[in-house]
Write a protein that binds this DNA or RNA. Sequence first.
DNA 1: TAGTGGTCTAGACCACGGA
DNA 2: CCGTGGTCTAGACCACTAA
Lengths: 240, 240
Amino acid sequence: MSGRVTAIYYQVAEDLKEKIMTGQLLPGEMAPSESQMAEAYGISRMTARQGISLLVDGGYLYSVPGKGYYVAAPNLDKIIIDASRDHFFGQKMKVTLKKVDVITADDTLAAKMETQAGEVILRMQLTLDSREGPVALDSRYLPYRKGEPLLENELQYADFPHIAARHSKVVLAKSKFNIGAILLTAKEAQALETEQGMAALCIEQLLFDREGKPLGWSRMVCRSDRYVMTGVAYPYAERV
Amino acid sequence: MSGRVTAIYYQVAEDLKEKIMTGQLLPGEMAPSESQMAEAYGISRMTARQGISLLVDGGYLYSVPGKGYYVAAPNLDKIIIDASRDHFFGQKMKVTLKKVDVITADDTLAAKMETQAGEVILRMQLTLDSREGPVALDSRYLPYRKGEPLLENELQYADFPHIAARHSKVVLAKSKFNIGAILLTAKEAQALETEQGMAALCIEQLLFDREGKPLGWSRMVCRSDRYVMTGVAYPYAERV
DNA sequence: TAGTGGTCTAGACCACGGA
DNA sequence: CCGTGGTCTAGACCACTAA
């Protein structure tokens, strides 16, 4: 792809990043200008700019038009949780579909789904098991559509957002999560093969299409002794 | 800044993004080539490329050198939790420093902090109150350093990562989170003005410097009736 | 007025992919 | 072989900032 082993603009970015990471350039200080970098490396301004842009995109620098580039202050404010199928639980989980039925939304469910009470809702309940046994009880709710059978096969292997998107034939645009702690009810405890009153993580997910219309809701209850959610935070978006 | 109201490359990106979002271009399909876009808009290839790059950075497209650009499949796999001081709890919290002491790490704490048992540790305990009353009990642990007094003032107003970074005089490079559910102990319940056995969210944070050395650990216990953690997931990084 | 970043051009050469 | 994206150049004009 590149005409060299490593592109010049990439080296520019690396060098400047190193200056920032080692404290030679401190947050708030001005970074070298595009022209200065171009001259220093004997390259064109556009190439220098390309390298600097990497650092801007990565959050290391920000630009002030008419003035220059400044070193950004690092922060760890964004916790990122990998909710992809293979990583959410840290291992492959056995998925068992326990029940599928059609219900009418009461006020509580309607509020959760941001829809009207009385709506006809398709409900699926499944359990997720690790080798140790049951870990989570997942209840998923979708607007009921006549003549749209859900493939059980798909339920086992696709995650909820994909199922919801296919069910509603739209593109997912957003998802909101609520993560809380609860005490297991008798029913939940039974399904999870443990005792009522045990602490559990409750992860609710509400899906939206691009018009902001809610598409589906799920509530996953996880045994706290078998699952701890993990996340990471980095000060910069790693691009260099 | 720009010579126009909106830059051409930006319009290129907007138009192409619209084609993707409305389903005129489906995931897996090939997007127009740089040359085609340049010709279609009557602009130079580099300008077309700049627009397309926005979509690549945003995750809408990916490139296959020698072949072209392809439309990426959306996913909601990354949950993002805003942990900035004002937003972690959704409102300003009253911070009260309850206790500061120096302890010796036992095996449990040493494991959590990824250090050696016997290490001398500075421990701070604080409560976070909303208008309703106590919400969270936060215990923070830092390696003890002689002659490094912590300013109580700072404890109230700075978040833990900043305090840890200043304390150790290094740049933070990473933070790991564990989020679980627990039952409140008698002590915790008393501090949070509630009853033992209540469900609570337990948020542990482990900080690292850029060499991967652990810098500090905190454990925050939150009353589940007063706090639910919220997060969002978007299929694309919003750049256009 | 001089310097900065933001945008844009019209070329160029390269490595790679597929026909 | 041609088309693709990846890199790079040597200019240009603009709006903005600060002296």
